[in-house]
Write a protein that binds this DNA or RNA. Structure first.
Length: 995
RNA sequence: GCUCAAGUGGCGGAAUUGGUAGACGCGCUGGAUUCAAAAUCCAGUUCCUUCGGGAGUGUGGGUUCGAUUCCCACCUUGAGUACCA
């Protein structure tokens, strides 16, 4: 074989890897461990496009590199196979999601295999596999059986809480729990009925049932996310949406807010990502202050980050939804307040957010009392205060907060100044670092820090406030009204949830005849006939039996998508054979610890990556795992974008005055079958301007379409871009007109106004790769045409891993011809036969090799895979020019390249006479001495104007170089008696002399 | 608005702590080879130029002998977030 037949080579080695289980990881090894993980894919029906494997290629390079470096590498892959698209497809077609998911996984696997990844498939996981979700259900039960002890700062078994309650009640318990837990003594507890006890415990459990508000769309019979609502109606079908309260499972992630924040310090993630998690957690330190309402029993609790400004309070604002509003509003103000509440309720959340500028509110007529001065403070309501954050009420300090300031100005409320020497006539003064408090009784003259401390102390003294830390992070709703997700291991007895014992898991999804919600608005599982729990036989039985005494209804909701993905990285640690009785054995968990390198998209910054950290911390607390962070290092790969092609359909508009000369009627028409070749003029077309382009266009239009003269006169041309499939377009942006015509029936009789030479140009734009934009490039085609190694190299070569970059298939010829050159380098014998020599390598070749080792090693460690591809190209060009055939060089070189282009590397490795797979070969060791010569040339420049080159021995000290520079003949000549002010010497770089 | 990231040829992008800006690849131009094409190889390719040079890393300043790199202000783009008290 003298030519590079990539298809044969790739097939051969992929088969070899599968047959020999080359990448199967072992849980027993003397080598250090390294765990490289990709975010597992959702197997969608569309299959992979060239953008998907980007991160997998990067992690594969790193995994292969680590193997060369002597690590025992775990590099698994699996599928996040529960999800909405399969369910929606099932609703449309009636096909069971399990069937479509299985088919999609097959496609994914075939596509992934073809790219030559070194995945250990023996450890594959699928979240929709009952043997997997058994453990998702088990973790849910563990969360249910746990509470969060703020004193020990960890989750503990619920039994410990029960024993505290029965011995001393709940007054001393510092737990993360619901706000409205009543206090009780030990006697109270022991006298409570079982169901009362369960009710109370539910308020402490880490997963609990609670009434949550959701966006309910009655017409669709489903709950919608905020993004799915546009202008108060559903995005799909424009049906009305209402706020509805539903009993749903929630996860008490808020208990972990502080630890999730602290944990960020211990992991190697990008600052941007950590920052967005910090924002999401949203910690703010301040105080809660209680205001008494005058002539009323009620008190209003507020949270403030500026207790030091307490004497600047001139009014309070409640959210319109605040529960006290109806109680405290006076009869006089009632009408106005109610009108305001109705008006805000009508506005969708989007509307409310969209116009921040408009200030609105209403006075309730009630007054609160200042905790220190006892002065009356008017209580207002305003929609700038959000019911969902803090307590839904604020103490307004207009001189220190711009929103309060604007509100006060608008409604003519006093703005007392409590800052020393600050002008607040134009705007609020929010800078807490630079001023002192004034007009504030005991706080006068203090800075922010001191005043805050003192204010909290004084508030505590009078029992009207204390220091408090507030988090934005809310508990996560864990119920979904869907079919294709994990069922809960929960049944209901007397309205209280009961967990099904571990031995009886998994509770598998029941069959339903339709995947839609029921007519009564129950989730799809409400359609199942066999969906009740028999507590005696411990199995799932028919619903009809529910009235029997030991048979109870099962939970109808399913778990959200993030349930299964919050712990899957532990599952890979265990080999398939040992997964029966445990989610992973203790030994496996101890050995692999956590993920050393995790690669995936940035869109999971605050979802998956926060929830997994939460579950891992919980599992750590309860002793199920040792580690308390899942991912040590994380890299977000950027997206590969598609280059869409647009043809311009001609729409036009004219005044139809054919019947009545007096009043023209404006008519917009689309000439569906007329398309215009793209040009600058077309985009910037101005139909009022009498341009040559326009006239020409009108003329040509008249030839092919039925455009009357009167139309031409007032014609306004509106070019409308529509997507054309990118496969119809060549690299010069010319459309294959015939292919386009045959694409879809409506284009069959299309007319084209072409360039003069008969070509038809499209315009191009970079967009997300997507089926609907017809800009998808399939990796199968690339592999067939150029090979998987070319695809791998090219994806890396495109640019930095973390960056968004457009795909352009034309550019792949660069890396492809590099591979051909590489092949040739090993085939310099007669007629291109394979050849290596046992001769000692030349100095130049050694230099090339070691330069490459150094660069590639650095690049991989820094994840700059793009530049190492360039380095390989340079190396191969240099070695080819040197006619290098030395075995020593060629053996080392191919090991360097093998993480990037594994197939060709295996083939050449075999030709070099090796029997073992190249993946076990040690990474070449860099030796600096090959880079160094006996002397080196240093360029010298004077003020950047003149440059000389000076040849100097190596390893000279800075002073020696400086002396040599001064002694240099040309330098001396240039300086001619002038004394240099400064000589700047940078060994190996440039020497500057300032004369 | 806030937070973060980024602005370099026709294009994707290099330039490790400030030290010859434009590596490498695509594209383009010319040449070799070929009946021809593909493939391959060689040379050139930031811009302007009166061929001496001159300008140049979003814009305007600053620090420095020297700035793509550091500092200040501004502009643009992308991402996240959204009245967070």
């Amino acid at each position: 074989m003298s030519k590079y037949h990539f298809n044969d080579i790739e097939k051969k080695w992929q088969d070899y890897w599968t047959k020999n289980q080359t990448f199967k990881a072992s849980n027993q090894s003397d080598k250090p461990k390294y765990y490289v993980l990709d975010m597992f894919p959702y197997p969608s029906g569309a299959g992979l496009h060239v953008g998907h494997p980007l991160g997998y290629i990067a992690s594969d390079i790193y995994a292969r590199y680590k193997r060369h470096k002597g690590f025992n590498v775990l590099h698994p892959q699996g599928y996040d196979s529960f999800g909405l698209p399969a369910e929606q497809y099932a609703i449309q077609t009636g096909q069971h999601p399990a069937v479509t998911t299985e088919a999609n996984i097959k496609t994914y696997r075939r596509q992934l295999d073809q790219i030559g990844f070194s995945f250990d498939w023996s450890r594959e996981v699928r979240t929709s596999d009952p043997n997997y979700y058994k453990w998702t259900q088990w973790i849910f039960i563990q969360l249910f059986e746990s509470w969060y002890n703020n004193e020990t700062n960890k989750a503990e078994a619920i039994e410990t809480l029960v024993s505290i309650f029965s011995s001393e009640g709940n007054s001393k318990v510092d737990a993360a729990c619901d706000d409205d837990v009543p206090s009780f003594s030990a006697e109270d507890w022991n006298s409570f009925s079982e169901s009362k006890k369960q009710e109370i415990l539910l308020q402490y459990r880490l997963t609990y049932l609670a009434e949550t508000e959701v966006n309910w769309c009655p017409a669709l019979g489903t709950v919608l996310a905020n993004d799915e609502i546009v202008n108060g109606v559903s995005e799909r079908g424009s049906h009305p949406v209402i706020r509805k309260k539903m009993i749903q499972w929630s996860m008490r992630i808020s208990a972990y807010a502080e630890r999730l924040l602290q944990g960020l310090e211990t992991i190697d993630w990008t600052d941007a990502l950590k920052e967005s998690q910090r924002n999401w957690i949203g910690k703010s330190v301040g105080a809660s202050v209680t205001f008494n309402v005058q002539n009323h029993d009620a008190t209003i609790e507020v949270f403030t980050t500026r207790p030091d400004t307490i004497f600047g309070v001139s009014f309070m604002t409640l959210a319109p939804e605040h529960e006290l509003v109806s109680q405290i509003t006076t009869t006089d103000q009632k009408e106005q307040v109610e009108a305001y509440i109705t008006a805000t309720a009508k506005r969708s959340e989007r509307d409310r957010m969209a116009d921040v500028k408009t200030i609105s509110g209403a006075f309730t007529g009630a007054y609160a009392e200042h905790p220190f001065t006892k002065e009356p403070i008017p209580i207002w309501i305003g929609d700038y205060v959000l019911a969902s954050y803090g307590t839904g009420a604020v103490m307004a300090v207009p001189c220190g907060d711009q929103r309060d300031y604007d509100f006060a100005k608008h409604f003519n409320i006093a703005i007392p100044n409590i800052f020393e020497g600050v002008d607040i006539s134009e705007e609020a003064f929010a800078d807490k670092a630079t001023t002192k408090i004034a007009n504030s009784d005991f706080l006068d003259g203090m800075n922010y820090k001191k005043a805050t401390k003192r204010a909290i102390y004084e508030l505590d003294q009078i029992g009207q406030g204390k220091g408090k830390t507030n988090y934005r992070l809310r508990d996560a709703v864990f119920s979904r009204q869907r079919y294709w997700g994990e069922p809960f291991p929960v049944y209901y007895k007397d309205g209280m949830p009961q967990m099904i014992a571990k031995e009886h898991l998994p509770i598998t999804l029941p069959e339903v005849e339709k995947y839609l919600p029921t007519e009564e608005g129950e989730p799809p599982l409400g359609r199942a006939d066999v969906w009740a729990w028999d507590t005696e036989k411990n199995n799932v039985v028919s619903n009809d039996l529910v009235d029997h005494k030991a048979i109870f209804p099962l939970e109808l909701n399913t778990m959200p998508g993030w349930a299964g993905s919050s712990w899957y990285f532990f599952r890979y640690m265990e080999e398939q054979a040992n997964r029966g009785e445990v989610f992973a054995t203790e030994d496996a968990l101890k050995y692999w610890e956590n993920v050393d390198l995790y690669i995936g998209g940035a869109e999971h910054a605050t979802g998956h990556l926060l929830y997994s950290r939460f579950w891992v911390k919980f599992m750590h607390d309860r002793g199920f795992v040792d580690v308390d962070e899942p991912f040590k290092k994380l890299i977000n790969q950027g997206m590969i974008l598609g280059t869409s092609a647009f043809v311009f359909r001609l729409n036009y508009m004219f005044f139809d005055n054919s019947e009545d000369d007096q009043t023209g009627v404006q008519v917009i028409k689309s000439l569906e079958n007329v398309y215009l070749t793209y040009s600058e003029e077309l985009i910037n077309i101005d139909s009022n301007e009498n341009s040559e382009y326009l006239n020409n266009l009108k003329k040509r239009l008249a030839l092919i379409a039925s455009v009357e003269d009167y139309m031409l006169e007032s014609l306004t041309i509106i070019p409308t871009p529509i997507h054309a499939d990118v496969s119809f377009v060549n690299s010069s942006n010319e459309l294959d007109i015939e292919a386009f015509k045959n694409w879809r029936p409506e284009f069959k009789n299309a007319e084209f106004i072409t360039e003069d030479d008969g070509t038809f140009k499209v315009s191009r734009d970079v967009e997300k790769m997507s089926k609907s934009k017809y800009n998808v490039v399939n990796p199968d085609d690339i592999c067939e045409q150029y090979g998987a190694d070319s695809l791998r190299l090219y994806e890396m070569f495109l640019g930095p891993l973390e960056q968004y970059k457009p795909w352009n298939t034309a550019g792949i010829t660069g890396v492809h011809s590099f591979l051909k050159k590489l092949w040739k380098l090993y085939h310099q014998g007669a007629e291109g036969s394979f050849m290596v020599s046992e001769e000692a390598p030349t100095k130049d070749s050694l230099k090339t090799l070691h330069k490459t080792i150094k660069k590639v090693e650095e690049d991989i460690e820094n994840f700059s895979f793009n530049t190492s591809v360039s380095t390989f190209m340079i190396a191969v060009n240099e070695l080819t020019a040197q006619k290098c055939t030395s075995r020593e060089i060629l053996e080392n070189l191919i090991v360097l390249i093998s993480p990037y282009a594994p197939h060709i590397a295996e083939e050449l490795w075999k030709k070099l006479g090796k029997s073992e797979s190249i993946s076990t070969a040690p990474f070449p060791v860099f030796n600096e001495s090959h880079l160094v010569e006996s002397s080196k040339e240093y360029p010298i420049s004077f003020n950047g104007k003149m440059r000389f080159t000076l040849e100097l021995p190596l390893n000279m000290s800075k002073d020696d170089i400086e002396a040599a520079v001064m002694a240099h003949e040309k330098t001396a000549h240039y300086l001619e008696g002038r004394t240099p002010k400064k000589v700047i010497v940078v060994p190996g770089k440039i020497v500057n002399i300032v004369g």
